[in-house]
Structure formats: structure tokens, C-alpha cells
Write a protein that binds this DNA or RNA. Structure first.
Lengths: 217, 217
DNA sequence: TACGCCTAAATTGTATACAATATACAATGT
DNA sequence: ACATTGTATATTGTATACAATTTAGGCGTA
């Protein structure tokens, strides 16, 4: 039986803060006044400060000593750099997975892929995106490397609120689906090098599109 | 004029804690009693707890709610997984650097490399190690990707106190030097794919050796 | 003896109080 | 009017106090 999930206040606060940032209630560059947020969230400063520290490590918040915290201002360039690192990690994951994936795991992945393809043809944007994200996550998970999974997750948090923009254009949408098809084929063939190369290209390309469609400063 | 470095107490505490762990004053699995450490370090619990949170994010400490913190027990397997992720990141760095390194930067890197080779032939272990580490760091830095640099640094912290074991054997020492030679040649030739491949192999191999020489549980 | 239940001590989590630092703005002199 | 300094206010950093939870051990009972 799996152990009960023990919650700490600062975890909830961190989650809420993350949500506030990702959904835009707090926008880039906004200063975070501890006491004000405390009142709003109805917690004391201690757990809030712990949450701020957490988000700082995730890169969503910047914190200068004695000058308080601000929501990180993300530039187009940083976005590309972020996706570049993610591409390196997902490449590693894809290689590992392609080399060792079990039949049953592949089937499960394939079913996700097929479902995504369906939504793609149907033009159902939100469902397509959700599955896309799930697939990338699944592949990293299948690597079986907890450190890889955790590192990846942390970086993805920063990229997340931009995912919609990423595939905004119809062209890229088409292209991305094609790339996913290629990756699945490489998995099926057990071609690790190919799977890795394709995945890297795919993520990197996504990063480039995000960079291009980024709101000009 | 560059701004004065503003220190926070919890940063110093974090540094000291890290040192305590890396030099073995606190060993794997040791419980960390907050009040005891506070007395020892002469700070209150607040900054210590912040430091603990920092090291938790770095993976040096594990923290279960209401049950306190423990120094992470690192298994051989986790070490290999750690190096695997690092290999992915350094591969990315090597590729980027090989494709775009400037003459002056290459010269500086080469001089580090040559100095390392010297210490290698002279059998000066400590100096060799220090330079080895510096070179890997330098290559990642030259990528010019802050996110890559930071992610890499964070993972390296966990691998650091095991670096000595890693190249313990004379055989591996020889091998590693050879691999470094190959990487430098790839840089010189501007062959990104080769540099990346070699770097990945090099780091992965290091991880395997670390895993093998790991004290049995 | 082994097991469960209860209580006390230890320890961690959260809130608050106090100290240090930064920011904003007025007063002063040039 | 402008720059500079001094002072008040706001805000963050650290210490401490209090609450909640876990851990350890004693006691009785089967």
C-alpha cells in the first residue's frame, strides 16, 4: 500500500503561486510583497517564503537579497535556451527508451500517440496539446531514471505556460505531428540513435518556434 | 565598478552544510537535528531551514514532512543515473561549443588541457583532478547557455564528492586522458557531432566506473 | 514475552516579534 | 532648480515563541 501523501503548507502555497504565475495573475516582472500575498493566501510569512524559495529554484521567481522577489521576466532567447536543454534531456530519454522499451509499454505509448493523432485530424487543439505533453512526459518517465525525470520536470515548469503559443501556427502543428510519427517509428524499430536524433530536433524546433512567436520586448 | 557581493546568512549556512556533507563530517543517512546544528553553527533555525531546503533541491538532503532531514543515501545505481544525465548535458554543451568556439577561447581551453596532460604524465593526481573538473566546467560555460550551466552545476554538486573514487584506478586514468585528447581534436576540427558523441561516451564511462567502484551497500 | 495503548519528550511546522536593510521623500545647501 | 544628505516608512532577514506531530519508552494485559 502506498504511503499517505503528507502535505505541507508551503507545498500548497508553492502550487498556488505557480498557478498564479502560469495563468498570468502575476505577470513577468511583478514584485511580490510578502505581507500582501500572505494576507491574500491567509498564511504567515514563513511558509510563503519557503514557497518562494522553491519557485526560485524552479526559475519562475528571481530573488535579490533584501530587495524581495519578482516574477522572472523570460526573454525569447532564454526560452530557446530552455528548450535546448530540454532537447538534450529528451534526446537522452528517447535513446534509452528506444533501446529497451517493452512490448507492453510501447503499446501503451502508441495508444496515446494514436489518440493524439485523432485529435490532430479532428482539429481539437486542447486535447491534442494535453496528449502531446503527456507523451513527452511518458517517454521521459519510461527512461526509468529518476534524476532525469526530476530535472526534466523542473525545466518543463518554466516552459509550460508558453506551450500554447508554441504550436500556434497551423504549419507547425502539422510539422510536429509528422515529427512525432517519425519518433514512434524509431521506437518501434528499436533504433536508439535515430529516436534520439529525431527527438532532439523535434524539441529544438519547438523551441525555435516559441522563440519566434515570442512577444517582442 | 561591480556591485558588492551581498551575502545572506542562509547561503553561508548552505555552503557550510555542503562542505560538511562532501567532506564526510555528515555521512549518508545521518539525521539532521535542526536545533543541534543550529547550536553548532551558531544561527537560528530559520536560516538553517532555508539552507536545508536549498540542499534538498540539490539532492544532497532528503526531507520528509515532520520527520526531519537526512543526508541522501546515494546508491551505485543512482550515481550511474546521475552521470547519465550529466552526459546528456555535456554532450549538448560539447556540440554547441565545437560548432561555434572562437580561436581565443579554444586556445584558453587548450592551455588548460595541456596543463592537465602535464600533471597526468607527472602523476600529480590532485592537480590533474582539479584541472579535469575545470575543463568540464569550462566547456559547459562556453556553451553560453545559462540554463544549461546552472542545471549542470546543480547535478555536479551531487557527483563531486565521488570524483576521486571515479578515477581511482590507473587504467581509467589513462583511458580518460585519451578521451580528453579525442574531444580536444574534435573541437579543433569543429566537428560538433563527434565532439558530442565523444563527450557523452566519456562522461557515461566515468559514471560506469564510479558505479563499479562504489562501496557495496 | 509479546503486543497494544498511553503518556512524555523530542522534534518539526507555523506564526509572530524584532533587527537590518532598502526605498521614498522631504529638508538643506549650493 | 538641482543635487545631496538625512529621516521616516516599507520591506525583507533573522530569531524566538507557540502549536502540531512524531518518536520512545513504560505499563498493563493476554
Amino acid at each position: 500500500m502506498r504511503p499517505v501523501r503528507r502535505q505541507q503548507l508551503h507545498e500548497n502555497v508553492a502550487r498556488q503561486l505557480r498557478a498564479l504565475i502560469l495563468e498570468g495573475a502575476l505577470s513577468d516582472g511583478d514584485r511580490i510583497i510578502e505581507t500582501a500575498l500572505c494576507a491574500q493566501l491567509n498564511v504567515s510569512r514563513t511558509p510563503l517564503r519557503e514557497a518562494i524559495k522553491t519557485l526560485t529554484h524552479e526559475g519562475l521567481i528571481e530573488h535579490r537579497p533584501n530587495r524581495g522577489a519578482r516574477v522572472t521576466k523570460t526573454t525569447a532567447k532564454e526560452m530557446r535556451q530552455l528548450f535546448e536543454v530540454i532537447s538534450g534531456l529528451e534526446m537522452l530519454a528517447a535513446e534509452t527508451v528506444a533501446a529497451s522499451i517493452k512490448q507492453s509499454e510501447f503499446k501503451r505509448l502508441k495508444s496515446l500517440h494514436d489518440k493524439m493523432a485523432m485529435h490532430h485530424t479532428a482539429g481539437e487543439r486542447d486535447e491534442y496539446f494535453a496528449l502531446n505533453h503527456q507523451i513527452h512526459l511518458k517517454i521521459v518517465e519510461l527512461s526509468g531514471n529518476p534524476i532525469l525525470i526530476e530535472t526534466h520536470a523542473s525545466l518543463m515548469t518554466r516552459a509550460r505556460h508558453l506551450r500554447y503559443q508554441a504550436l500556434a501556427g497551423q504549419d507547425r502543428w502539422m510539422e510536429a505531428m509528422e515529427e512525432h510519427n517519425g519518433i514512434m517509428k524509431a521506437f518501434e524499430a528499436g533504433d536508439a540513435a535515430l529516436a534520439g536524433r529525431l527527438m532532439k530536433q523535434h524539441v529544438r524546433r519547438t523551441g525555435e518556434v516559441v522563440e519566434a512567436t515570442f512577444p517582442a520586448p
